[in-house]
Deep mutational scan, measured.
Amino acid sequence: MEVRTIKVFTTVDNINLHTQVVDMSMTYGQQFGPTYLDGADVTKIKPHNSHEGKTFYVLPNDDTLRVEAFEYYHTTDPSFLGRYMSALNHTKKWKYPQVNGLTSIKWADNNCYLATALLTLQQIELKFNPPALQDAYYRARAGEAANFCALILAYCNKTVGELGDVRETMSYLFQHANLDSCKRVLNVVCKTCGQQQTTLKGVEAVMYMGTLSYEQFKKGVQIPCTCGKQATKYLVQQESPFVMMSAPPAQYELKHGTFTCASEYTGNYQCGHYKHITSKETLYCIDGALLTKSSEYKGPITDVFYKENSYTTTIK
């Protein structure tokens, strides 16, 4: 009895394709271990004539594949690729409408935090270190965002349907971005203890939790000093293409032309909904596939993004 075979390709990165001759009487799992086709788990399936010449994702289970996976995804987590594939199996079914010149995501599976993050990423200057993220990001900007969303979920250790947080998501993504040249110098002034300067680099240099107003941050924000008295913390120097200011959701007025974009969060910790506000020729609110415009805006804002380049204080 002759062994019926077909020729397929296996890959971990969709760049390096490895030619395989597979036995049609055995499952993919018996031949390769966990195997995925377009995100779908085909591990328990036997090869079919229609699979001839198709590319299958496999887990990096030998040295060659491990090197290829690390170079593309910059992670050695053995569960990463499987999590990416199972997320992709959902995100490829989502709709990605162009809204006001940006790629958004039609609401499904509690994905409003991903839509808000995706919209924000198209408006701030950011370059990702893992080629996987950078490639998928370019495709997302062009309207094909399924891979990018699935990668975000995998890097953030999230599953489809789980509630997510924009600030946490951005923080994970910033860790995989090139923020080497970003720098922030802060000064804390206390009447009792004097003053202390701190220099922050990388992710810490672009994120701040405690106030939404970048102007206020430049002037000074009140913080408790270690001595128990009130101290003032203010920005001395900022070198970065953008800054992200966050605070627990509270009524906040966004003035046209003073910011790049913002995240609105309605609801409580267990259950809520994100919308995205962007400042173009007027203010726009993007909620999944829905767009509304207004000249002014007041609502429960939790993150505001500002364009920056270089700032030095005039406070002496």
Rank of each mutant, 00 (worst) to 15 (best):
G29E: 11
Q134F: 05
S263C: 11
E2R: 09
R167Q: 07
P34A: 02
K54M: 07
G101F: 00
Q197S: 12
Q238F: 01
R184P: 04
G33E: 00
T226G: 14
T5E: 14
Y138G: 15
V166T: 08
K95L: 06
M24T: 10
K280N: 10
H276Y: 01
T5F: 15
G33P: 06
A289C: 15
G299E: 04
Y96S: 02
S181Q: 11
F174M: 07
H90R: 13
I45V: 09
D62N: 09
L200D: 09
K307W: 09
C261Q: 04
L163F: 14
V185I: 11
N268M: 08
C190L: 02
Y137N: 02
H74V: 01
A289V: 07
K106P: 02
G53E: 11
S181T: 14
Y234W: 11
Y137F: 12
K158F: 05
S294C: 12
N111A: 01
Y311D: 08
T199C: 12
S86I: 12
Q222V: 12
G29W: 06
S79R: 11
L81N: 00
H273R: 15
H256C: 11
K229I: 07
G267H: 14
E308S: 08
D41N: 14
Y306D: 05
N268W: 14
Y284C: 13
N49E: 09
K229P: 05
Y284A: 06
A177V: 09
Q134W: 03
K219H: 09
A289R: 07
V42H: 14
K54S: 12
L114C: 00
Q251F: 07
V185H: 03
F242G: 04
M85G: 04
G202P: 03
K7S: 14
A154I: 00
G272I: 03
P300N: 15
L59Y: 08
D41H: 03
V166I: 06
V58W: 00
I105C: 02
F305W: 14
E264M: 05
E71H: 06
T192G: 12
D165L: 06
L65K: 11
D63M: 09
S50R: 15
V21C: 13
I15C: 12
M207W: 08
E2Y: 09
K255F: 05
H51W: 02
D109T: 03
Q216C: 07
N89F: 15
T19V: 12
Y137M: 14
Y214E: 10
E204R: 08
V22P: 09
G272P: 08
D135A: 10
K158M: 02
T232I: 11
A132N: 00
K158A: 04
E204K: 14
N110I: 00
A132V: 00
Y269P: 07
L290N: 13
G220C: 01
Q195K: 12
K158S: 02
A40Y: 12
A69K: 03
K298F: 09
Y172T: 14
Y172H: 14
E308P: 05
S171G: 13
Y297E: 04
Q196H: 14
A87P: 03
L291Y: 13
T10I: 15
A117H: 02
T169C: 11
C227Q: 02
I301A: 06
E52C: 10
I152H: 01
L200S: 09
A132R: 03
T232K: 09
K183H: 13
A150C: 03
H74R: 15
V12H: 15
I6W: 05
H51M: 07
F242E: 15
V3S: 12
F305N: 04
V22Q: 00
L173D: 01
E71C: 11
T159A: 13
T292S: 11
D38A: 13
K127N: 12
M207N: 07
Y172R: 13
G164R: 01
C182I: 07
K54I: 10
T292G: 09
V42Y: 13
Y214R: 05
T258W: 03
I105W: 01
N61A: 12
T314Q: 13
T159F: 07
G288F: 03
K7L: 10
C112Y: 04
Q216M: 09
C190T: 04
F128W: 10
Q222E: 13
T64A: 10
S263L: 07
I277S: 04
K293Q: 09
V166Q: 02
K219Q: 13
P97G: 14
L102N: 00
S50L: 10
M85E: 05
T211V: 09
D180I: 05
L102M: 15
T103S: 04
T266K: 15
Q30L: 09
D62R: 06
F174S: 03
S171T: 14
Q238L: 02
T313S: 09
F174P: 00
S104E: 02
Q251M: 14
M244E: 06
Y269E: 15
A136H: 10
A205V: 02
T278K: 08
Q222C: 12
Y72P: 05
I105E: 03
M85C: 06
S295G: 13
T55V: 10
L254E: 08
N157T: 08
K127H: 14
K255C: 12
H256Y: 02
A108V: 05
A145K: 00
L163H: 15
E144L: 08
I152C: 07
V166D: 03
D77F: 01
W94Y: 00
I301W: 04
H74C: 04
S213A: 06
L59Q: 12
R83S: 05
D23G: 10
G39D: 07
N157C: 10
S263I: 15
Y297Q: 04
T192P: 04
Y155D: 01
V8A: 08
F242A: 04
N309M: 12
V221Q: 06
S240A: 08
V58P: 01
T169D: 03
H90G: 12
G29V: 02
L186P: 03
A117G: 07
T169N: 00
G53L: 12
Y284D: 07
D109L: 02
L200F: 12
T103V: 12
L17G: 05
S240D: 05
R66D: 06
